[in-house]
């Protein structure tokens, strides 16, 4: 029985990793084929580093991820604080439901709905929709789909806050505002940071919604990769770029994990 379950586990993990392994293999292919390996070469990677369009898409991806996650974290954290204090139960659950719509909705519907919003604004102002698409449209979209994740990771930390600490700070002469910054904000910081990291990665990773709003000029890395892939054909340079992107995401994950561990350890020290 144990043997069978071991073999089964290995098989599933092979299924999960084999395509990625084959992708990495063919990104080093000397020939321009993704089905027959003709020898090892770094040509595709060399080509990528000289490609201005790739760098532009990379820059776009990073700028968008950083801006959208910072803004979503600010708006979302404020919202989580406000929602926790909201007296009207119906309003609160209403806001929460609406916020979660982009999380529940299939990406394609969120993309379509935002595209229609810009199309409508374009008709009102009498311009083509393409002029409204691109950076700003995508930024708005990314903030929108990042918000529920930020709120979901901050809200539980607010619920865990010790009210007595805030009151002690007030008694000891803090103004309400400084009590917030000195006592409450540090308490919810882990939630804010994990919300920020979540938003950042989701923004880098998004394809469907970005694709619908990118217009004809603008592209992020996933949209750029999509544009390079034809119907059922893929070239080694796409695999090379994809491999680099995977490594980048992996590095990001390791960094955020290490950071989170350190923060947790710090907190444990403080409370102990």
């Amino acid at each position: 029985m144990k043997q069978i379950s071991r073999i089964y586990t290995v098989l599933i993990f092979v299924l999960l990793y084999a395509p990625i392994a084959i992708m990495i293999l063919f990104s080093f292919n000397a020939a321009e084929s993704t089905t027959k390996f003709a020898g090892f070469s770094l040509d595709w990677y060399r080509q990528l580093f000289g490609d201005a369009e790739v760098w532009l898409a990379f820059k776009n991806t990073m700028v968008l991820a950083l801006l959208s996650s910072v803004l979503a974290t600010l708006i979302g954290t404020a919202a989580a604080i406000g929602l926790a204090k909201m007296k009207n139960r119906y309003l609160r659950s209403g806001v929460q439901t609406v916020t979660n719509i982009p999380m529940m909705n299939p990406d394609i519907v969120t993309g379509v709905s935002l595209l229609l919003l810009f199309a409508m604004v374009a008709t009102i102002f009498g311009t083509g929709v393409d002029r409204l698409l691109g950076f700003w449209a995508i930024l708005i979209a990314h903030i929108t789909f990042n918000l529920p994740y930020v709120i979901l990771s901050v809200a539980p930390k607010i619920a865990q806050l010790d009210r007595n600490l805030t009151e002690a700070a007030l008694d000891l002469g803090c103004t309400p505002l400084s009590a917030f910054f000195k006592v409450e904000l540090p308490g919810i910081m882990p939630g804010i940071i994990s919300g920020f990291i979540m938003a950042f990665t989701l923004s880098i990773d998004d394809f469907v919604i970005t694709y619908f709003l990118s217009g004809s000029e603008y592209s992020t890395l996933p949209v750029y990769i999509y544009g390079l892939t034809g119907k059922g054909t893929v070239t080694p340079d796409v695999y090379a770029l994809s491999t680099l992107l995977c490594i980048g995401v992996l590095a990001l994950l390791v960094c955020s994990n290490v950071m989170q561990r350190r923060m947790d350890a710090k907190q444990r020290k403080k409370t102990a």
Partner: peptide, 27 residues
């Protein structure tokens, strides 16, 4: 303090109406 807290959800609510509810209505 409670005033600040009660309006801190406002930007998000405006955002949600503009970019979640309105687009859905346009669909």
């Amino acid at each position: 303090r409670s005033f600040l807290q009660s309006i801190s959800a406002a930007p998000h609510m405006v955002w949600a109406v503009l970019f979640i509810v309105t687009p859905m209505l346009f669909v």
